[in-house]
């Protein structure tokens, strides 16, 4: 049970948040132009890294804002938190 520093509310317990999976998977602007394989890549393919991973989190029992978290999945250490639309910090 880790603590997440919500960029809008500050440090809160993990129970207030829900994870939305891998970050920076942008919805294709023109889905109809894509082949089945390309669409499947967007739709289904997710990394599941042991180590530093970029994730989407939602402060669902708080301000309900979505934001990004850089988390090491092997020890839950959070390296950075940043708002949607902001550039990810360099590794």
């Amino acid at each position: 049970m880790f603590i997440i520093n919500c960029p809008y509310c500050g440090e809160r317990d993990q129970t207030e948040f829900s994870c939305g999976g891998e970050a920076h998977i942008e919805r294709p602007k023109q889905p109809t132009e894509l082949s089945d394989d390309q669409w499947a890549e967007y739709l289904f393919m997710r990394k599941n890294i042991k180590g530093v991973q970029f994730e989407r989190w939602n402060h669902i029992h708080g301000c309900r804002k979505w934001f990004n978290v850089v988390r090491d999945t092997s020890n839950d250490k959070i390296h950075a938190v940043y708002k949607m639309g902001e550039r990810p910090p360099v590794k």
Binding site: G20, E26, R27, R56, N58, I60, R64, K65, W66, M84, G85
Partner: peptide, 13 residues
């Protein structure tokens, strides 16, 4: 509601 908020905040801001 969560799903709609998600799209509004992340895909179609």
């Amino acid at each position: 509601l969560s799903k709609l908020e998600d799209y509004l905040q992340t895909e179609w801001p």
